[in-house]
Each structure stands twice: as structure tokens, then as C-alpha cells.
């Protein structure tokens, strides 16, 4: 009648992995809503596709490993990976790139290392970088935000674009695509324009690009929710944003005409999303508090360095992957002082 004796504690457990993942998904809603508002239905189509591919890939590998697929799917981690990936890529990405991305993320980056908890790299970011390097054009072709767009895609048009690559009649890519704010800033700075001149263009809002800054604001809201719910700690997001702000601030003070003001960096690209949702992936981040500060700040600085002098306009994915490699070493050297160690007796 009795099964094996169970070790203490004998109380109900407080947390659950699936609940944590669910909270993350919940927190993504404001950002996703803003992004859908400004960039169209394509995002929702992409999310649906990515989630489907990711869950199927996860289930297939678990079956191949002779394990129950339900546990792996039930922890919702594949869903989070899929949604983060879909948010990061252009909402017009062809479906087969989403498929390749999800296969890469789930099968290679996650499951081949042992699955949930064992992957050294953030699966969503690894897939993003893999596609960015392999398919740079598709991965960097963004639509203009809705207030600047000549054409507003209907749901069916978005679906058709993603599934077949066909644009609505009379439209050309050149007409509807638009440089992202980071691209715009970089390109114009390379042409020798000053920040003041650049910012006279129509694409700029108060902090970043029009539309884009609202998306970042949505993710900020979700990030604060995660902090409030204690799903994530403050160490990584705050140190990452500070790293980026200080990096940007120093150069902005030196020469504000060739270096954009710090808030621009914060509200452009994936800085906010990265700080709260990507760098905080517990599996691939540092686990000691001191280590998390170093980890986050290093990502922030690296993002600034790559954005300013690297080959790509945005750098969150690269910076996160780079620091993923360093995380175990940082953890090793930042162990906290254990109770009763290093106190002089008496």
C-alpha cells in the first residue's frame, strides 16, 4: 500500500514551471498588441505558425527519445521560445523560414543538448541569428509602421504574403518596406548627417521610431509585470539597460551630434524586449546575483558596441548568445559568501 518514503519537505510546492512560463506569455501581450497594431496581422500569423512548429518539433524529439511528449509540451517552454522568435522576426517572414527557425531552435539548440534546462544557448535567439546570417534580406525587411504605411494589410493579405510570398496586386516591396529606426539612424550617420538633421525625417517619435517606441513601451509594461510578479529578478534587466544607457550616455555626452541620445537606444530595436524577456531566460543566464549584474551589464554594453561599430544595426541576439557562453564561468567566479564562512570567531 505504501510507496517509497518521500524526503522532506512534506508541504505543497509553491511554484510551477508551467505557471512561470504562462506568466511570461501573459506579460508579452501588451507588446504583441502594440506590434500587431503598428505592423499588422502578420505577427499573429507568425506566432501561430511558430508555436505550432515548435510544439510539433518538441513532441517529435521527445517521442524519438522515448519520453512522454506531454511533459515537455506542458511546461510551455517551447511556446515561449516560439512567441519570442515570432516577435523578433519581421511579421512578413515566409512560413518556411519560421519552420526552419523553429526546427533549429527546438531540435538543435534545445533538445540535442538534453532539452529543457540543459541548453547553453537561448533557443529563440540562436534561431534568430541563424536565420539572420543565412537569409539576411528576408530577416531585415520590415514593413513601415501603420501611420507611415501606404498600404494596410488585411488579415487575408498577411496570410497570403506569409504562406505564398505574394504581395497584393499593385504593391512592390520597395514601396511598402521601410528601414527600422536603428537602420535609418545608422545609414544616415554613415552618410555624414548629424543627429539633428536625421531626426527631421518623418519616422521619428519622441524616443525612438514612431510606432516602434510604443512596441518597446508595451514590452516595458510586460517586463514590469514580470518584476512585480517576481517571475524575474531585477538584476539582469536593470543592469542590461543601465549598461546600454551608460554606454550610449558616455558617447552622447562626448558628441551628441554623431551619437544618438541614450533613450533612443533604449526604445529602439529589441533592447527592452531583450532586457526583460530574453536575457532573463533562467536556463541560459547567470544564476548568482552578482553574476547576473555582470551578465546583464555586459549584454547592455555589447549591444551598444555592436550597434555603434559592428556590422549589424541591432545586436541583442548576438550579445545574449555571447554572454550565454560566458554565463557558467561568471557563475563560478561570483559565488556568494556562504553562511559561517569568512567570519572571524569571537
Amino acid at each position: 500500500m505504501k510507496t517509497a518514503l518521500v524526503s522532506s519537505p512534506h508541504v505543497p510546492r509553491l511554484n510551477r514551471v508551467d505557471r512561470i512560463m504562462f506568466e511570461v506569455l501573459l506579460a508579452l501581450i501588451p507588446g504583441i498588441a502594440a506590434m500587431t497594431w503598428f505592423f499588422g496581422w502578420g505577427l499573429l500569423v507568425n506566432i501561430t505558425l511558430a508555436v505550432t512548429f515548435a510544439v510539433l518539433a518538441e513532441a517529435a524529439v521527445m517521442l524519438a527519445r522515448g519520453r512522454s511528449p506531454w511533459i515537455a509540451i506542458g511546461d510551455l517552454s517551447a511556446v515561449v521560445t516560439a512567441v519570442l522568435f515570432a516577435i523578433s522576426v519581421p511579421p512578413t517572414l515566409p512560413w518556411w523560414l519560421t519552420l526552419i527557425g523553429m526546427l533549429f531552435a527546438i531540435v538543435l539548440v534545445k533538445q540535442l543538448y538534453g532539452g529543457m534546462g540543459y541548453n547553453p544557448f537561448n533557443p529563440a535567439m540562436a534561431a534568430y541569428v541563424f536565420l539572420l546570417i543565412s537569409y539576411p534580406v528576408a530577416m531585415t525587411t520590415w514593413l513601415a509602421p501603420s501611420m507611415l504605411a501606404e498600404h494596410s494589410f488585411s488579415f487575408m493579405e498577411s496570410l497570403r504574403l506569409i504562406l505564398t510570398g505574394g504581395l497584393p496586386t499593385g504593391l512592390e516591396w520597395d514601396a511598402i518596406s521601410s528601414a527600422t529606426p536603428l537602420d535609418e539612424m545608422r545609414g544616415k550617420l554613415d552618410l555624414g548627417l548629424t543627429i539633428e538633421q536625421i531626426r527631421q525625417g518623418p519616422v521619428w517619435g519622441e524616443l525612438g521610431g514612431r510606432g516602434w517606441e510604443w512596441v518597446a513601451g508595451g514590452f516595458l509594461l510586460g517586463g514590469l509585470y514580470l518584476l512585480w510578479r517576481r517571475v524575474i529578478g531585477w538584476h539582469i534587466p536593470i543592469s542590461m539597460l543601465l549598461g546600454l544607457l551608460i554606454g550610449a550616455g558616455v558617447f552622447w555626452i562626448i558628441d551628441p551630434q554623431t551619437h544618438p541620445f541614450p533613450a533612443f537606444h533604449l526604445f529602439s530595436g529589441a533592447a527592452i524586449l531583450g532586457a526583460f524577456f530574453i536575457a532573463t531566460d533562467p536556463v541560459t543566464a547567470c544564476t548568482t546575483k552578482q553574476g547576473q549584474l555582470i551578465f546583464g551589464a555586459s549584454i547592455g554594453v555589447t549591444v551598444y558596441v555592436i550597434r555603434s561599430w559592428g556590422g549589424y544595426p541591432d545586436a541583442v541576439a548576438f550579445a545574449v548568445l555571447l554572454m550565454n557562453i560566458a554565463a557558467p564561468t561568471i557563475d563560478y567566479y561570483t559565488q556568494p559568501r556562504v553562511f559561517g564562512h569568512g567570519e572571524k570567531p569571537g
Binding site: N15, V17, I20, I71, D75, S77, G114, G115, M116, G117, Y118, G233, P282, V283, A285, T287, T288, D331, Q335, P336, R337, V338, F339, G340
Partner: peptide, 21 residues
């Protein structure tokens, strides 16, 4: 499930250990 290295254990450890490690 597998450890996701969330570090909640280290946050509550009264001996200030790193239980996940």
C-alpha cells in the same frame, strides 16, 4: 522536471548556498 536554473532556491537558502549547483 529538469532544473531551469531559475535560482529561486538560492534566493531562499538561509545558508546562502547555490542549491542549483
Amino acid at each position: 522536471l529538469a532544473c531551469i536554473r531559475c535560482g529561486r532556491c538560492a534566493e531562499v537558502c538561509p545558508a546562502k548556498l547555490l542549491p542549483q549547483q
